[in-house]
Amino acid sequence: AGLADAVQGPFSTDEPLTDHAMATGYNNFFEFGTGKEDPKRHAHRLQTHPWSVVISGEVDKPGRLALEDILAPHGLEERIYRLRCVEGWSMVIPWIGFPLGDLLKRFEPTSRARYVVFETLHDPEQMPGQRSRILDWPYREGLRIDEAMHPLTLLAVGMYGEILPNQNGAPLRLVVPWKYGFKSIKSIVGIHLQEDQPVSSWTARQPSEYGFYANVNPEVRHPRWRQATERRIGESGRRRTELFNGYGELVADLYAGMDLRRHF
């Protein structure tokens, strides 16, 4: 299905959209540099055709699939989600994509598949930021299987009615709106299911600052940014941050009985 056929999906917010120029011009994508404008400046180097994704690990049907084959069976939906960055800013983005769970089911996860690990492309030719070892490339992120299967969790291929711009994670990215933005890994080339909890790239870099769960939580302090408030890009001043980025009704059950301060 093409982007034009995308239907309105569930869970959308009616808050005003972030300006398109801001959503595509103010990005964290360290593969293209650490400045907020670096991704827009350098992401044109990324070749998204052809693109393939390797699905491996605890699945009955592993394999390497071309992007077209990944997308073919899925109908696309537009979903307007809040995005909260760990750095204390937020946006409202109209994504186009489909639930990650629908994709995972196609590969028939085994009973040992308890976590899903994602990997970004590693190619310093296309991603000049990878020439400096600021992170242990390639970028890796992970979700618990129930988080991955949650209907809110999206794989996006577009935003604002168009194909994902490279700086926003083309051609395929994750969107987990109740977690800090760095969990929503961009330009995915690998999806691996496994039994053990993986170590995310930022957790490996600075475990005291970036936990595995990284759920948006105004109560859990971060040494670098105050998480109780956020700056909605395009607005002046700050607003209060909500637990699970305001998606608590949908996702709080996933963490029943867990100490969210310890599992941050």
Binding site: R226, A228, R238
Partner: peptide
């Protein structure tokens, strides 16, 4: 907001 930020962040 400012006071809370200064109190929270080294």
């Amino acid at each position: 907001f400012m006071v809370a930020e200064v109190l929270a962040l080294r």
